[in-house]
């Protein structure tokens, strides 16, 4: 029980310490206004191009995208924040296992991502006067949790790069751009070329976005079990790879002396 309490305590403490929570203006700009403006931009764009067809699905997909990006960026920022504050070496040299350590430090960011996504979805629904049935909302919650789990696995893999690479912003933006493009959140999946579909199979979010659109636009739940199962397995695979990579990146950081590089 003490271990579980420590896990959550650590999560809250590291979030407060590393995110600059002392200044609410930064939080409002980065975690509220920026995601909302992104959601609004794509909502206005797809509403114009597709004449309002399937708009609710696009808005819900973009809310999911924001949620995932916030969670993944949060995981990545844990390592770079520690590096910026000069505490990364202390964290890496503790005798504790690194996987639960980083997962607990990421947890608050996942919760924060969910909060932003729900706010974003409400914002989009109110602004465009859309309606989503209550049973669809419950299904969306499950789909989003599994999608976040899967995306966080990939985020943790990329986060390990930050131990040997000084370019965290580049890696995180590359991942964000890739997810934005490949997920199909802003266009019908039918326009995606076959080669990109092959890439999309191995990316988190693709199935989450497809299910979100199916459920919100057509009330179609038929693919839910299959696609969610695939997404969960993909997430497990990502986490397994990330555990190996954390150990390898830790070794690389020690050998190359790059742990504190900015």
């Amino acid at each position: 029980m003490e271990a579980v309490q420590r896990f959550f305590r650590h999560s809250v403490l590291s979030y407060k310490a590393l995110f600059g929570w002392l200044d609410p203006k930064v939080y409002i700009f980065v975690m509220v206004l920026n995601p909302f403006s992104q959601l609004l931009f794509f909502a206005v764009l797809v509403n114009y191009v597709y004449g309002g067809e399937g708009l609710a699905g696009y808005i819900a997909s973009n809310a999911l995208l924001l949620c995932v990006m916030n969670s993944v960026f949060g995981i990545m920022s844990v390592i770079t924040s520690d590096r910026g504050m000069g505490t990364l070496q202390l964290v890496m040299s503790t005798p504790s296992s690194k996987a639960p350590l980083f997962i607990s430090r990421s947890l608050a960011h996942v919760v924060n991502g969910m909060f932003t996504a729900v706010m974003g979805l409400l914002f989009g629904i109110l602004l465009f006067g859309l309606s989503i049935p209550f049973d669809a909302l419950l299904s969306l919650l499950v789909i989003w949790l599994v999608s976040i789990f899967s995306a966080c696995g990939l985020g943790l893999i990329i986060a390990t790069f930050c131990l040997w690479s000084p370019s965290m912003h580049m890696w995180s933006n590359l991942l964000a751009s890739l997810l934005l493009l490949v997920s199909g959140a802003n266009y019908p999946l039918s326009v995606m070329p076959a080669w990109l579909e092959q890439v999309a199979v191995f990316m988190p979010l693709t199935r989450g976005v497809r299910l979100t659109k199916d459920i919100v636009n057509q009330g179609d739940f038929s693919q839910m079990a299959t696609l969610l199962g695939q997404e969960f397995l993909l997430g497990c695979l990502f986490f397994a790879i990330s555990l190996v990579l954390i150990a390898y990146a830790e070794y690389l950081a020690r050998v190359k002396g790059t742990m504190d590089l900015e």
């Binding site: 191009v49 934005l180 493009l181 802003n186 266009y187 326009v191 995606m192």
Partner: peptide, 8 residues
Amino acid sequence: TLAFFIYG
């Protein structure tokens, strides 16, 4: 690419 897919 994203703009092209949207306006394809």
